[in-house]
């Protein structure tokens, strides 16, 4: 049971850490100064969530690993984030599409997680929910602006949606870890979020004059450590200091 809980918290932590890492890449390069500040803010929320989750995962594991050991000293196949969050920033439309798909899932996810029997997860959820609400609002507003903006922006937004759509199915998967913890009242059943997610996405796409892609093949594997080719590069950069200078205080 402890192992399952550890694995489950780690997934949530990895999702947050990897998305935070990606968003951090934008810093100083965003389309407007307001967005530079906005994206850094969203990145910061995710890094904050990752810290709380990794720390808790370390406690549950009970082997003395702290947040940094879990984030910087695990190998590629040990990471269990979903594939969506590791996708490269691409252009601004891709970054926005990635954030929108993820936050449209995470807002109801954290809302439900507040009722978890695990008090620590419930407490983390209470804070994360507020952050996710802002992330969803911010990204949805951009989906609408870009979709209903110029011809070029609409095309870029639609392309970004098509590109990332196959990674959204994974969000709703429940493997044995999730199923057991759902039955225990600890985890959130992702299937229970599907309708709300589709409704949110559909509504925003409608306002944005964008087309919702067909339900189709979903690429998965992240939860069991099968990542995309981009992932090793991300880890190389993120873990560089801890790998080059092991065991030091920073």
């Amino acid at each position: 049971m402890k192992d399952l809980l550890f694995a489950y918290i780690l997934r949530l932590a990895d999702d947050a850490a990897i998305l935070g890492q990606r968003l951090g890449e934008w810093c100083g390069h965003a389309p407007t100064l307001e967005e530079d500040i906005g994206l850094a803010n969203v990145a910061l929320d995710h890094i904050g969530q990752a810290r709380a989750l990794y720390s808790y995962a370390g406690e549950v594991e009970g082997k003395g690993r702290d947040e940094d050991q879990l984030c910087f000293l695990r190998k590629e196949r040990e990471f269990s984030n979903c594939l969506l969050v590791e996708q490269p920033n691409g252009d601004f439309a891709e970054t926005i599409a990635r954030q929108f798909f993820f936050s449209a899932f995470m807002l109801p996810f954290w809302e439900k997680m507040k009722a978890s029997k695990d008090e620590t997860l419930a407490a983390i959820a209470a804070k994360a929910e507020k952050e996710a609400a802002y992330h969803l609002r911010h990204s949805a507003e951009w989906v609408i602006r870009l979709g209903d903006g110029t011809e070029e922006s609409r095309e870029r937004m639609q392309d970004a949606i098509e590109l990332l759509w196959p990674f959204t199915g994974e969000l709703f998967e429940a493997d044995d870890t999730v199923k057991v913890l759902v039955a225990e009242g600890v985890a959130v059943d992702p299937a229970s979020i599907r309708d709300e997610w589709r409704e949110t996405v559909g509504k925003v796409f409608g306002q944005a004059t964008l087309e919702m892609p067909e339900e189709g093949w979903a690429q998965t594997g992240g939860r069991s450590g099968m990542h995309t080719e981009h992932f090793g590069h991300l880890l190389t950069e993120m873990q560089y200091m801890q790998r080059a200078y092991p065991g030091l205080k920073w």
Partner: peptide, 22 residues
């Protein structure tokens, strides 16, 4: 930012750079 050695330092650096933008 992407190479900060710890999560705490990464968060502090992000916040700092965000302040500069502000």
């Amino acid at each position: 930012i992407t190479r900060a050695p710890t999560l705490k330092r990464k968060a502090a650096l992000l916040a700092k750079v965000q302040d500069e933008g502000g």
